[in-house]
Amino acid sequence: MDIRELQAYAYFFMTILLVVALYGYILHLYRSEKKGEKDYEKYGKIALDDEVDSTPIESNPKSKSEK
């Protein structure tokens, strides 16, 4: 098997893998919202409510000071 053939296989399988990953991601985005596990749109609020003392959307337990 020369490098060309190897390249062709690698390319083919990578493409399939990436297409699956991409559609998997779209599915994940919408399904998790539908099932109520996760609301991605709430993250959009991070930009709007961004004072240093506003309540985080999701608190980071590792941060130095808890609000």
Binding site: A47, I57, S63
Partner: peptide
Amino acid sequence: IGIRREKALYVS
């Protein structure tokens, strides 16, 4: 990012 209070990283 290491000392953040907001755990979720905004898309920016």
